[in-house]
Design a binder for these strands. Structure first.
Lengths: 158, 158
DNA sequence: CATTATGGTTAAGGTGCTGTACTAAATTGG
DNA sequence: CCAATTTAGTACAGCACCTTAACCATAATG
């Protein structure tokens, strides 16, 4: 007979498998315009710039947990490819505000749309479950999220 | 007032945030021996080799969804670094069976231990919830996993 | 006002991947 | 049986993305 502990373990493993699958989905390149593609990383950076009106290089670096150097290189590439505009910030001569070009906007929309479709599909499937079942899921996810946060802060502190 | 649909959406977003956090945790290098480190990728490949007695290059490639070329290169590196042994398979002159060296075993154990610690911690935290609550989580995760599988097979077919 | 902090860049190098082109060994089917 | 195909693995070039280190210029601070 399966103990409660075993059952919990099995369930957690299931969660981790889902996390891995999600990572796989997220790694696929994004098509926009019906003919052009961007890498996942590019799509995410474009996403981050599109979501905020005052994003700068350092902000991107923090957002993605990479060095300023890497963020600078990525932005330079996106500017060169015509996805991103880099304008002097009004209050500073050393800071830039990033925004999307028309083409960058297309990528942003394609990404939003893909995400929205997935979300709608999941909502439809989970609609079969009761409010209280969903509530239980939320509470458990909260507990799991808290554990992950602890692990993350543990490890990054070292 | 929040509709059920909104609530589901919020909960799914929570799940995706957890998936992202998990990805972050999984990207951290693994320390073994109290002084040496391997990259996440190396640890995972070592893990896969340690789990199976008859793993070969092609098997690794399939397991990780990469090309045989990439798997070959990774194994060559691990052999060079002294983590992995590559022996002619008994039934074939073109196939190799991979196994762990003593040093590779240390990495394997360190990985198992770290994973075990995390799992134990999560089990402890989730122990506060009832059997039926956990069961609900499992059922929901199952539904979510099925959706992800569909998305994956959709996208990889294209 | 000198010092330090902040925002950003460049250059060199590393990891891990793909694609292409290639061996050599095993399998198959006429 | 043996020619054609498939399977296992490799070498090399090149790409995406990252880091470290050294560096400017501007802004903030004591």
């Amino acid at each position: 007979m399966e103990t409660k502990e075993d059952f919990i373990k099995t369930t957690i493993r299931q969660l981790l498998r889902i996390a891995n699958k999600y990572a796989l989905v997220e790694e696929l390149p994004l098509r926009f315009n019906d003919r052009e593609e961007v890498t996942t990383r590019e799509a995410h950076v474009i996403q981050a710039i599109g979501e905020s009106t005052e994003m700068n290089i350092t902000g991107l670096a923090n957002r993605f947990g990479i060095t300023k150097s890497a963020a600078s290189q990525m932005v330079a590439k996106l500017v060169k490819k015509g996805f991103v505009d880099k304008k002097q910030a009004p209050h500073s001569n050393k800071e830039f505000f990033l925004s999307l070009t028309k083409k960058g906007g297309q990528v942003f929309n394609a990404h939003e749309e893909a995400h929205g479709k997935d979300l709608a599909y999941l909502v439809e499937r989970l609609g079969a479950f009761s409010f209280s079942q969903i509530a239980t899921l939320a509470v458990l996810l909260d507990a799991i999220g808290a554990v992950m946060d602890e692990r993350l802060s543990d490890l990054t502190r070292e």
